[in-house]
Simulated assay, not measured.
Amino acid sequence: MTLLKFSTSYPNTPSVNIQTPPKASKSEAPAAQEAPAGSPEAKNWKWWFVVAADAFFLIVGQTSATLLGRYYYSQGGNSKWLSAFVQTAGFPILFFGLFFFPSKSSSGETPIGKITMIYVVLGLIMTADDMMYSHGLMYLSVSTFSLICASQLAFNVIFSYVLNSQKLTGLIMNSVVLLTLSALLLGVNHESYGPAGVSRGKYLLGFLLTLGASGTYSLILSLMQLTFENVIKKQTFSAVLNMQIYTALVATFAALVGLFASGEWKDLKGEMDRFQSGQFSYLMTLVWTAVSWQVASIGMVGLIFEVSSLFSNVIGTFALPIVPLFGVMVFHDKMNGVKIIAMLISIWGFASYVYQQYLDVK
């Protein structure tokens, strides 16, 4: 089985060992030019296909989940704990991955107590991250929310440098500066109010919480990478799935506790009755939000396994130009001049980072 490598290069791309063969006769030359099914070229195309499929799942799942989350609030939903709950509640879907890629026992298994503690800590951090995202999505328009979320790439670079010894280059630093500038433009823009009825104070709170959520998400990815390198030391697809499943399990349970402890559960029946598009739409919005987050999770896990956690974050940021456009079409978000400039700066920063990835691969 292919091993997981946490680096910015493409570790699973098959390498070619060039050797000087004996001189072939003219009759043997045509046969030598044909690429068999198991050749490095065929494996390379297969690897790119898998990476493209994982990227598609991540982008579609993340975009759908963000739009459905905003739709929940726009139609009368108001429970932030429920919104946090559905972000991880669909984790049982990932058990299908364990069914097809079962884990193999080895003599160097991580002590159960130690790995359980890691899952609990990461799961609780994930719960805090989900709550910050829920507040941000409630107080911000979906276009502003997605643009601020692009800052997670800059946070990821910082945490990867501190915790994972990530190499910093001029292009990467350029990306960090541009993405930070884009977020600052939205923060000081007096015209970037949130949805109708959201005050300036709540807009600023949503901005800060979304920024905090982006940084926390990047911290989670770096901590996961650090755990694999120094604790689990078993970089297989099943190990990555286990990490995703059990941290999501803890986060889901913590969100459920918060839902009941806060008393928000008492208003869920009334919230469903007041939902503008109907009770069935209310249930379907929650169900498909949970499914969408897990589709994105499958893509994220696949990219972590095939490439790296940092590259997975890069692809997640690729949805940046997509979500604001849907926000304008579906929710009639206003795209003023500052938002357009922030989007262009963010795309420029993203392109700088992608070009650095291209140079690393080359």
Rank of each mutant, 00 (worst) to 15 (best):
L178C: 03
F228V: 14
L67E: 12
T127V: 11
A89P: 06
L82I: 09
A84Q: 00
F145I: 03
L58G: 08
F159P: 07
Q294V: 05
G337R: 02
T8S: 13
G136L: 04
T116V: 14
L163T: 11
S160W: 06
A65W: 12
E306L: 08
Y358G: 00
T66S: 08
S292G: 01
F96M: 09
I172C: 02
Q356V: 10
F326P: 06
D130F: 03
T2H: 14
I158F: 07
S352A: 06
Y355G: 00
S312C: 15
Q33D: 03
S292I: 01
S218H: 09
C149Q: 02
W45Y: 09
V51A: 08
P111H: 10
K269R: 15
G327W: 07
T13H: 07
A296N: 12
S277D: 14
T144K: 11
L219I: 02
F275E: 05
G38L: 13
N44D: 08
F6I: 15
F155L: 03
A248L: 04
M343V: 02
Q244A: 10
Y203I: 01
N78Q: 10
I158S: 06
A42E: 04
G316C: 08
S192R: 10
S143R: 02
S297L: 15
Q33K: 12
P22N: 15
E306V: 08
I340M: 08
Q244N: 11
P30E: 05
V328Q: 09
Y71P: 05
G108F: 12
A35D: 00
G278T: 09
F145E: 04
A183C: 06
V338C: 00
K23N: 08
L184G: 04
V240M: 13
F228W: 12
S74H: 06
L325G: 00
V291C: 07
T66E: 03
S103T: 10
L124R: 11
S352E: 07
I125M: 15
Q279C: 01
F56D: 07
